[in-house]
Design a protein around this nucleic acid. Sequence first.
DNA 1: ATGATAATAGGAGATATCTCATAATGAGGT
DNA 2: ACCTCATTATGAGATATCTCCTATTATCAT
Lengths: 223, 223
Amino acid sequence: MEKINLEDYAKNFEDIYNDIQKNFPKAVLHQAFICKFSSNEYIVRFDEEVQYLFLLLEGRAKIYLVHENGKRALIQFLKKDDFIGELSLIEVEKNLKDVVAINDCTCLAVPFASSKEHLLNDNLFLHNLSKYLGEKLLKRTDHYTDMQDYEFKNRLAKYILQIQNDGCFQEKHSETAEYMGVSYRHLLYTLNQFHEDGLLEKKGRKYIIINEEKLERLSLKKD
Amino acid sequence: MEKINLEDYAKNFEDIYNDIQKNFPKAVLHQAFICKFSSNEYIVRFDEEVQYLFLLLEGRAKIYLVHENGKRALIQFLKKDDFIGELSLIEVEKNLKDVVAINDCTCLAVPFASSKEHLLNDNLFLHNLSKYLGEKLLKRTDHYTDMQDYEFKNRLAKYILQIQNDGCFQEKHSETAEYMGVSYRHLLYTLNQFHEDGLLEKKGRKYIIINEEKLERLSLKKD
DNA sequence: ATGATAATAGGAGATATCTCATAATGAGGT
DNA sequence: ACCTCATTATGAGATATCTCCTATTATCAT
């Protein structure tokens, strides 16, 4: 983890800095700085108290919930403009999560110690936070109800369509399996089936979508 | 649905009214009133726009998410002090939910039209709302990750322990099955197994817990 | 390069859970 | 009382998904 002075960062990323200024009170920004995390680095650990509110400026990360039985569930992917630690800020978090950088991540770090008061009395911030939490709630609910009402092949079709890039699906299988809540083995099995059914073509480690329409249909239907 | 004047209600339920006064600006309460819903009545319908922020004062209700394929998922039970319509208030709700009264429910109804501005500029309310949403997010996440990381018999044990009353489990089976995300058939099957394993005793339509310790163990273990 | 570690790949067998069908019992309304 | 409809019950068979094993590739640090 590498710390960078906020002013230095501001020089190179004016647009992003402007957005930040719009959404945070000045007093808070005086205490804030920039954190860079490398791929696979922990941003937050489930067994250590959170000290900062992070705002993800660049990169992708993932949230894991750690169960008492030791199992982890990948519960959400984070991207630009996502908060980290916001539930600790408002003191509702009981069981902390692991948050791990997927690739290199740049975050704004706002220390609770000096900024909590300010943030919790700032109307704009609270309004933003409410909207953010509301959206997170909806997104997570949708993800999980899908999980319970559609079987895996339908959900996988939907996921591939959503996350594909230029007709190309190249997520890590282990991550996909964790996020979708199925075993690695079953993911492979289903991917093979998609291949046999002429939905995907394999190219090295990637899968290419060759019948988008059929995938669409599969992603919607319960059948 | 029956409307009641807020002042009339206040006379009979002073304690509750005091709590309300603490959390809502006066200007807002002038426009608010009390709604009574009977058992099984819809408080909010998924296909009708929400006009009020409700605060549940008495009774229990349940939230359903309606899928495109027509299936419904029971996603949460609501009780005293839960909000209804708060996501519409902050304008993040896209797919509305069904909210149905389980027994007779009493709600405070705050009309969006006249009160939205006030509420969204009230610091205390926003702070409360953020905490409420954060807790709802956590609760829902826990519920769903449990669903994916523990098999049904473990989750059912946990659920029974949580919802039992004087060692007595008497929820409606159909509701339990919907909430837990399994088929009705499988719920019965598992309940029978609990009976055979000496965890529960059947008394008419109710189940009595006769081995709480064993239930506890089952609820924790993944095994 | 070389070895070590993680990711991909697939076989075989077990089981948790689902679907569909049918019957019995209970509750509410006329 | 009687009919209707929702709830509780149970059987039989199908399958989606899991666990456990074992190879075969990539990736990465030394």
